[in-house]
Nucleic acid binder design. Structure first.
Lengths: 256, 256
DNA sequence: CAGTGGTCTAGACCACCAT
DNA sequence: TGGTGGTCTAGACCACTGG
């Protein structure tokens, strides 16, 4: 049996559906049905091309879809192989934009500014933002609510620049990256976030309206500019009874 | 000023670095430097091609790199545009494979099986696995440790199939998806995980060696087969003092 | 209508891999 | 050395967009 005989499905060249997509779906079906198992080698590209009487570039486009979906991987000089399904690694939990998320759920989002002031960097802040002690920073804290129920408590710091005073307008948007862009001369392009498991302290509990020591997510966020210098830092507390982070981990092609 | 005049960088056609990558980098630099702002339109593909004296397919490959990196988006019949940077949405926190992660950190991973038995589904389990009450399921619990320090406490259930008795071998690998594959007739292809903020109960605290009510991550995992029927369900407790989930959210091309 | 991106072709040369 | 995937070309036709 030659490797060209793996399947016998046909391609409709006049379909509205692109040939590369039809071909990718054929391989997806064979892989998910177990006709091709992890580690198996796919037929060479030129062979697939001649079998279906299509160009090799189209075959490559189909294979690139499989690779993007995690179903296959290529090795130069060797071949393309069926990937092993890995439902176990790289689980990505998503935390989406507060306003968009709440509107999707038909809830009314709102933000209440608790505090805005100029502070001087203490040891912690100086280290986080890599600035000298006592450097002036803009501090602000706020509460994000949905349908008047407080859900998130934010504390943020950005390096203060006299040249770019903060505008009333910008305080309405609690986004650290936008605030950093507005107050810094430099454009923020990278952020690093660390998700901690934590329990609420007294101040946070009263603001969020949850019992002391309730479980919460704490997200520590640092924003960097093009030179990888920090321009903003903050901590956000997410109520654990309201926030669940969900992850879907599939092993197939995206549908049209 | 024509749109071809956005930049004047040159391409080296004889470089080892692919043309499409050089071209993508040129656009990345212009975008990050602010020469092209979000919403700006890129020159038409045929124009870029003739400017650099390369083929349109190569230009398209470069643009597809930009799109994959989130720097641009295309609209059929209209053009390709610079995307707006969105550091705020879709933060993805990753939780990686236990064994690989520990080995990367030069720690010795180990798993200790606490319990394996056949149980009959109670109301919760019946609902989670969408099976009748009292259906027989395989239950097992285990502790994952690194350098003999317990880090994760796992409780898992899979639908029990007489046809496929569980093998000693498979119990050494705590992966729910592999266990489901081994015991079910159906191949698991999708998993859903939900990350909760929680505090440890007494049993969990003693197993993990942390104080009662310590903050932890609780991951609830459900595994589905090709027909989206659940084949396995489990809860994992991750020590909050040892686990931090990190997310980097960039806005640039991946480097070679 | 003219202009755009989306798809596809039939070639080509190269670097890498195994033998 | 022969076979593989990676890159690239110079065309082509199409569907969609806007005026």
């Amino acid at each position: 049996m030659k490797s060209t005989d793996f399947n016998n499905e046909k391609i409709n060249k006049n379909s509205i559906i692109p040939i590369y997509y039809q071909l990718a779906k054929i391989f997806e079906r064979d892989i998910l049905a177990g006709k091709m198992k992890p580690g198996d080698i796919l037929p060479p590209e030129h062979e697939i091309a001649s079998k279906y009487m299509i160009s090799r570039m189209t075959v490559r486009r189909a294979i690139s879809e499989l690779i993007a979906a995690g179903l296959a991987y290529s090795q130069k000089g060797k071949g393309t192989f069926v990937a092993r399904p890995r439902l176990d690694d790289n689980i990505a939990f998503e935390l989406n934009d507060f306003y968009e998320e709440m509107q999707k759920r038909s809830m009314k989002p709102s933000a209440r500014l608790l505090n805005v002031k100029i502070v001087r960097a203490n040891a912690t802040l100086a280290e986080k933002l890599q600035i000298p002690l006592e450097t002036r920073c803009l501090y602000f804290s706020l509460v994000l609510s949905a349908d008047n129920e407080p859900l998130v408590y934010d504390n943020k710091y950005v390096i203060y620049s006299k040249q770019k005073p903060i505008l009333e307008n910008e305080l309405k948007d609690p986004s650290l990256s936008k605030l950093a862009a507005a107050t810094s001369e430099r454009f923020p392009i990278i952020s690093r976030r660390v998700l901690h498991a934590a329990t609420v302290r007294e101040e946070e509990a009263s603001i969020l309206g949850v019992p002391l020591n309730s479980p919460v997510f704490m997200v520590e966020e640092t924003i960097y500019d093009t030179d990888k210098k920090p321009v903003g830092w903050g901590k956000s507390i997410y109520r654990g009874d309201r926030y669940k982070l969900t992850s879907y981990n599939g092993w197939s092609l995206k549908d049209y």
